[in-house]
């Protein structure tokens, strides 16, 4: 503002410059509007972030296409695409609920964003709800894209999509809890390294796209208890083998959700 503007007659002052222009009029927007606004903001930021897109969309699509060139005995099923598609959907869920969420939340914590948003009408609980909706929305985009690519590659799914959706929700809960556990305790760089490292490790050996039962004998019993294996097997049970609700997988995912959720509630630091 220039000195001339400052010395202008009060009659020229209007809007927020006028007397009373900044007068208090506090009030929150409706709860659903606040949460929807934040959830869409979370999705928008994730879709504008190149590294996040690489993680959540490009790598799963590349893995899906790449797997169709593998020999049948790696996944233990023919045609490979039918086994690959549920596994890659599981991978996509891990990339969003765990890796993407951990990294973004870790940096938001470091930069005080969590603290500032917690002080607005959104609040801490609203922020967590919005993040969860944001993750589910991104997963919907991922599943839609991967399904189209898989269908083009000849995927024929079995089972009920409703049962698959239940597995997706349970897997999201488990991996969100684990992601927030990292984000709320480690330094932002630590979260970045661990979240990416764990993602790659699970991709290779976590029973996600390659079932635990196809891994070397000594690994299989351990890996089959991991949430990644439970999520991958659960989706394969439904979409590949046409089973109903995979209760064994859901139980493992629930146990991880409770464990990580309880730890997160105890240890999460907002700044």
């Amino acid at each position: 503002m220039s000195a001339q503007d400052m010395s202008a007659q009060d009659t020229r002052r209007q809007g927020i410059h006028a007397a009373g222009g900044l007068a208090p009029r506090p009030g929150a927007a409706s709860r659903w509007r606040v949460i929807a606004t934040q959830a869409l903001n979370e999705v928008g930021m994730a879709l504008r972030n190149g590294e996040q897109l690489l993680l959540t969309l490009v790598i799963p699509v590349v893995v899906l296409i790449g797997m169709t060139h593998l020999p049948n005995d790696v996944v233990g099923h023919s045609p490979v695409i039918d086994a690959a598609a549920p596994g890659v959907i599981a991978l996509a869920i891990i990339s969003t609920a765990f890796t993407g969420q951990a990294i973004s939340t870790g940096f938001e914590r470091r930069y005080g964003v969590l603290r500032l948003l917690g002080s607005t009408p959104l609040g801490r609980s609203g922020l967590l709800v919005a993040k969860t909706f944001g993750v589910l929305l991104i997963e919907a985009v991922q599943i839609a894209l991967l399904s189209v690519v898989a269908l083009v590659l000849g995927w024929q799914s079995a089972g009920s999509w409703l049962a698959a959706l239940v597995v997706v929700v349970f897997g999201t809960a488990a991996f969100s809890s684990l992601g927030l556990l990292l984000a709320g305790t480690l330094r932002a760089e630590g979260t970045l390294a661990v979240a990416n490292g764990v993602y790659l490790l699970l991709l290779a050996l976590g029973g996600v796209v390659v079932p635990a039962s196809r891994l070397p004998g000594f690994l299989a019993p351990v890996v089959s208890l991991l949430p990644s294996s439970a999520l991958g097997d659960g989706l394969r049970d439904v979409l590949l083998h046409g089973q109903g609700l995979p209760l064994h997988s859901l139980a493992i995912l629930t146990a991880w959700t409770l464990l990580a959720g309880a730890l997160t509630a105890r240890t999460f630091r907002w700044s």
Partner: peptide, 21 residues
């Protein structure tokens, strides 16, 4: 600060404004 490192000024303000009546 407490502001997203990738945020621009006006979109950030518009976003927060939607939280209020």
């Amino acid at each position: 600060g407490g502001i997203y490192s990738s945020a621009r000024a006006l979109p950030m303000l518009r976003h927060l404004a939607r939280f209020y009546a």
